[in-house]
Design a protein around this nucleic acid. Sequence first.
DNA 1: AAAGATTGAGTGTTCAATCTTT
DNA 2: AAAGATTGAACACTCAATCTTT
Lengths: 182, 182
Amino acid sequence: MNVQVSYTRCMPRPSDDPPWLSPEELEAWRGLLAMLIRLPPALDAQLQRDTGINHFEYGILAALSESPERTLRMSQLAGLANGSQSRLSHAAGRLEQRGWISRAPAAGNRRVIEASLTDAGWRAIEKAAPHHVREVRRLVIDALTPEQITALVGIGRSVLASADPAALAWLDSRELGDAASC
Amino acid sequence: MNVQVSYTRCMPRPSDDPPWLSPEELEAWRGLLAMLIRLPPALDAQLQRDTGINHFEYGILAALSESPERTLRMSQLAGLANGSQSRLSHAAGRLEQRGWISRAPAAGNRRVIEASLTDAGWRAIEKAAPHHVREVRRLVIDALTPEQITALVGIGRSVLASADPAALAWLDSRELGDAASC
DNA sequence: AAAGATTGAGTGTTCAATCTTT
DNA sequence: AAAGATTGAACACTCAATCTTT
């Protein structure tokens, strides 16, 4: 009775279309899927406990802290924090109410809004970062061998290239900025 | 001015604690993070468009379709679909209203609830699966080389082992079931 | 009292509509 | 009219409280 219809077929492929997953492909996909679903809540839990912000808000503060003048236009910030503009607007409202960021129209283009990290915001992420990085190490980095880390870099780039080319471009622009700043 | 406080430091490590990320570790982490955030919405978009359900609801139907009698107890189903019991209860309510699953107390243990795929639910996932699998292939599987697929299996297992050992156990139990059923 | 599951209030995200500036 | 950003309603998820059965 155990007919599988969701990701794989027991029977040989009908005609290569639809293309079901091989056993190893299925195992890789299920593993990725489990990470996709379990990792964000695990990271959120630590941040929520230690600082009362979620992972997306951390990304906002982190991106600002790494920027010249600790300032970015909202649209750039959305890309760096991996979120939509709408999501960023809502989150920025929350962070602004806490006094951790401020927003103001840009001189020159007043339809562009620039977000800046306040001193209180700087202190907040400075306090949060060590704990968070430690958790990232514990859950991901230290669980992998150096070879796996290298493989993960390639996998991330390949998947992003097909799933969201713009995100890959963001990633690359950020790497360049990092290299230049050291 | 560009001091980085979020994941990496330009300066040498103060004392190995907090342990900031090396450039390659940072790149791997950012790539994984981008996947973590961008992939689920991309998959949801296709499912939403083609069938009006989200990825979690797909997981529920998929898990049931692969089970003997197309039936599972709610607590098992939650694990297989990668969600909490509460989340499953809410989602099951939605799917039940659509007539795609049904719930009933188990004979013997009446505090255990068993969820079953209805005929309409079976037809729904039978129709949805090919499109969804094609999208998974397009975004992930076909973007990777066979070597990367193999590496991904190991990475997934390692990360889950540290982030959520119980999830790894679920994964393994499922692999066994698959092997036995063919 | 514990196990299994559900419920409802509170919160965050999405989507479409809107507002402002160019 | 287009670009940049915000708003509010609808919806899904989380957390704690609750209900039922053992």
